[in-house]
């Protein structure tokens, strides 16, 4: 049937935003091949309205496998189910999110269905004639861009980073089919048991899926000073991140770390203060759309990557910026 599939994600019955981002990528490919776009969702207790939104935002069909045993992501069962669907429906292309689940599921499935997989693609296209998926991705910390294809295997599979594409606007005039499938018992793998979930940080942030990230480094000097960055982040509905040096000093917990040994992010706006811009830090922010940096050192490496650089003392600049944005909000200018 050579459809394009995107793998939707849910958490506690709610669709995650990345499900819609994938549809905008998938829509382009499906249109180019003149074929249908299907959103595939494995989960439990997802409302009809949520499924309908997948159609409003680009899907022609939604396959929903609804079962309590799929509520939590367990790679063994999820990959059995997806591999089974692939064998049955034979999609042309599958796009998944480069999230903790997508990055586990897809490499497992690639082995099960015997095909290639390209991680973290920033550009996707269909090759004229062959209809192969052209997958462009950064490697070596974003220092090279490789274009990859899978000429002799099907389906064509790629993951895409959260926030690297925008969802399509909701078009309530779109019609499509919601197809509910039941979970086959033999695909359930009970070897791994999820026995709990820990979320003990007062504000557990998901920096990979934030539109705006405001980060601080060693130049922040101490933990309390991150208050001004939190304030700034809040003004943009964003979250706070940190360099490794700041995390190693205990100023913010590890899930906030950006860079080679932390998270790679692609936000719309990245603002950083007191971060020098080491090669390891830059590896995590290269695909950010807009970068603003504040640093006292005019030769700081971070300015190489900045779209807007302020050479100055962050302890003067950030509070003033906060104040200015507060006035801006009040006066609308």
């Amino acid at each position: 049937m050579s459809y394009v599939w995107t793998i939707a994600e849910q958490s506690k019955g709610k669709l995650r935003g990345v499900s819609f981002e994938l549809l905008s990528r998938g829509r382009k490919l499906a249109d180019k091949m003149n074929t249908q776009l299907c959103s595939v969702l494995l989960g439990s207790n997802v409302s009809d309205e949520a499924l309908q939104e997948l159609i409003y935002r680009g899907a022609d069909n939604v396959y929903f496998i609804d079962d309590p045993r799929l509520e939590n992501f367990i790679v063994e069962t999820h990959s059995n189910v997806l591999s089974d669907l692939i064998r049955e429906y034979k999609p042309h292309t599958i796009l998944a999110a480069a999230t903790s689940s997508g990055r586990s599921l897809m490499p497992y499935v690639a082995i099960q269905v015997n095909t290639g997989l390209t991680a973290d693609c920033t550009e996707l296209d269909i090759e004229e004639g062959t209809k192969h998926l052209l997958q462009t991705r950064p490697a070596i910390g974003g220092n090279i861009m490789a274009t990859i294809k899978t000429p002799n295997h099907d389906p064509q599979m790629a993951t895409v980073r959260p926030k690297s594409s925008r969802p399509l606007p909701e078009d309530t005039g779109r019609v499509g089919k919601i197809i509910r499938l039941s979970l086959k018992d033999e695909l359930v793998d009970n070897r791994v048991e999820m026995i709990g979930f820990r979320k003990d940080l007062e504000e557990f942030v998901n920096i990979e899926e934030a539109e705006v990230v405001v980060a601080g480094g060693k130049g922040m000097k101490k933990q309390e000073n991150f208050g001004m960055l939190k304030e700034l982040a809040k003004r943009f509905d964003g979250v706070v991140g940190a360099s490794r040096d700041a995390v190693d000093r205990g100023w913010l917990p590890y899930p906030h770390q950006i860079g080679l040994s932390g998270k790679t992010i692609s936000p719309k706006l990245y603002i950083c203060a007191g971060i020098s811009g080491s090669i390891q830090h830059l590896a995590g922010i290269k695909t950010s759309e807009t970068i603003i940096a504040v640093n006292t050192d005019p030769d700081a490496n971070i300015f190489q990557l900045a779209d807007f650089g302020i050479i100055g003392n962050l302890f003067e600049v950030i509070p003033k910026l906060n104040q200015r944005l507060e006035n801006y909000k009040k006066e609308g200018k």
Binding site: A110, M145, A306, G312
Partner: peptide
Amino acid sequence: PTKVVKIDYPKVTRGGKMVSANGEEGI
């Protein structure tokens, strides 16, 4: 299964706008 068909070396530097923030007025 996957084949690299092209490698590019993107320019990572952005040549953005730079401003100095010195003193009350400068900031």
